[in-house]
Each structure stands twice: as structure tokens, then as C-alpha cells.
Write a protein that binds this DNA or RNA. Structure first.
Length: 274
DNA sequence: ACGGTCAAAGAGTCTC
DNA sequence: GAGACTCTTTGACCGT
């Protein structure tokens, strides 16, 4: 019966056992230091050797990626791609994250525009909430890193940001969102497994009820056994034979049972128990 | 037009 | 209190 497989899985879920790389996600309540240590152990600092594209200054070399993404929409991605290796193309994009959104004052697009121009004099595409699409290459590198570890320490964040021409904040956000997606996916998987487990248990319950019914009718139909105390008879739900403990020689479906209850656990005792 | 996806913002929480 | 995290929401973009 499929009970065991599913329910073993259920047990694994309950224990939170994960083998997949993305499940280097930290368990709740795990210490921050511990986390960082675990991560730094794996990181060798040389995964992305020679892409020094800019000053390590976190104050922000605005990313070509944004420009490229924006340019893509405007049909100018090719040129921007070429600029990707040149810092001269990197314009400032300071503190977009520190700019409060203007949702409190609906209908004030003018205000937003003001902020946009304040933020990026050189680049009107760099509006705070302008949608950015990461390039395939950027996503691939980020994915690779995420497979190694689901969290980044500040240095790794910096390095990765520099390598990808993104702001560290963007790298950070990408990892946050990626963790959320992973968690969501895992929740869906867990949900499916629980559903299956529930279905299996429902089936098992039905089957046991049916067996009980059959036992009752058997009791009525067989006067000989009626003379025995009810507790001495038991039926194995798997082979559907009435059996007695310690009477292994009997080939008859019916035999005397030990006075103790026949405990049957579908989870710990597979159907092959008989 | 609408729904899905995803980068990003903001609030709240946790750990040190 | 700082910093990193999760959770929730927002808004741009894209495919249908």
C-alpha cells in the first residue's frame, strides 16, 4: 500500500529535512554568526576572478544593468551591452531605496517626477520604481550563487554586485526574493504531500471500517466463534486472516488469538507484516 | 483588459 | 541600536 512512502515523507517534512541546495536556508532561530560562518566556509573569494568593473565604493555606481534593461525597452540594448565593461557608462544612482514612495499623495505624479529628476539627472530612465529586469547572465550568476548558499555576507554581496554591475542593495533584494520564492515552492510541495497523505489515510480509514463491518457479519454467521470471548479473535488487516499470536503453524484463516490486543500500525508495519 | 511574474519598498522581528 | 532577515504589498512589465 502506498501509505508508507507518503507518510515517511510526511515524517521527513515534519522534521524539516531538506537536501536540496536551496535549502541551505537557515533554520529559524539559528544564530546569525553561525549562519555567516557556515557561509564563509564555503566561499573562497575566487569564484569570479577578473571582472573588476568599478570602484568598490558602495555609493553607488549605478548599474548598467538598469540602463541596459531600460535601453532594451527602448531598443538600444546592443550599445549598452557594449558599455557594460566601461565604468564611464556608470552613472550615479544614489539612494533610490531611501526615497519614500509617493503613494500617500495620490495623483501627485509631478512630485514623483521631481524626485526622479532629482535622483538621476543624467539618466531619466533611472526612476526609483522603474521596473528593472535582470539580464539572463545576471540571473544565471545569481542563481549559481544561490545554489551554493541562500545568504550572502556583506563582502560577497559587494563582490557580486560589482561583478554584475548591480548595486549591493539589488543583490540583497534578489536574494531575499529568491528565498521567498523557494519557500513558497517548498510550501506548495509540502501541501501536495499532505494532501496525498490525507487521501491515503482516508482510504485506510474506509478500508478499516469495511473490515470491521465484515468482522461483525462474520461474528453473526459463525456460531462456533461466537462461543469464544471476543477479545481472543483478531484479524490482520493486511492478509485479512484472523490470527493468533504464537500460533504460527496454523494455515487456517481462523485461529485463536492471544488475549492481548493486536496492535496494528500502518505506518510502522508495512502490509508485508503477515 | 487582465493575470502572472518579479524587482523593490516598507514594516515588523530576531539576534547580537 | 544596527544589521539582516521575513512577510506583505506595490508597481512595472509581459504574454494572452
Amino acid at each position: 500500500m502506498g501509505v508508507d512512502g507518503v507518510c515517511n515523507t510526511g515524517l521527513a517534512l515534519a522534521l524539516g529535512s531538506h537536501d536540496k541546495p536551496e535549502n541551505h536556508l537557515r533554520p529559524d532561530h539559528q544564530g546569525k554568526n553561525k549562519r555567516k560562518k557556515e557561509f564563509s566556509l564555503k566561499y573562497d573569494g575566487h569564484l569570479f576572478p577578473s571582472l573588476s568593473l568599478g570602484p568598490s565604493d558602495e555609493t553607488f555606481t549605478y548599474q548598467l544593468a538598469t540602463k541596459m534593461a531600460a535601453g532594451k525597452a527602448c531598443g538600444e540594448s546592443a550599445d549598452l551591452q557594449k558599455q557594460a565593461s566601461s565604468l564611464s557608462a556608470v552613472s550615479s544612482f544614489s539612494n533610490s531605496s531611501s526615497i519614500k514612495r509617493e503613494k500617500e499623495s495620490p495623483g501627485e505624479e509631478g512630485e514623483v517626477e521631481k524626485i526622479c529628476s532629482r535622483v538621476s539627472d543624467e539618466d531619466e530612465e533611472a526612476c526609483p520604481r522603474k521596473k528593472l529586469r535582470l539580464t539572463k547572465e545576471q540571473s544565471a550568476v545569481l542563481e549559481d550563487r544561490f545554489k551554493e548558499h541562500a545568504t550572502l555576507d556583506p563582502k560577497q554581496k559587494q563582490d557580486l554586485a560589482r561583478q554584475l554591475n548591480l548595486r549591493p542593495r539589488q543583490v540583497e533584494v534578489w536574494f531575499q526574493n529568491r528565498r521567498a520564492r523557494t519557500k513558497l515552492k517548498q510550501t506548495e510541495v509540502d501541501c501536495e504531500l499532505l494532501k496525498k497523505c490525507c487521501e491515503t489515510l482516508t482510504e485506510e480509514n474506509k478500508r478499516l471500517k469495511k473490515e470491521l463491518q465484515e468482522l461483525k457479519s462474520l461474528k453473526l454467521a459463525a456460531p462456533f466463534y461466537m462461543q469464544l470471548p471476543a477479545a481472543t479473535l483478531t484479524m490482520c488487516p493486511s492478509c485479512e486472516r484472523i490470527s493468533a499470536a504464537g500460533d504460527g503453524s496454523s494455515t487456517s484463516p481462523f485461529s485463536l488469538a492471544a488475549p492481548k490486543p493486536h496492535l496494528y500500525n500502518p505506518f510502522t508495519h508495512p502490509s508485508a507484516a503477515c
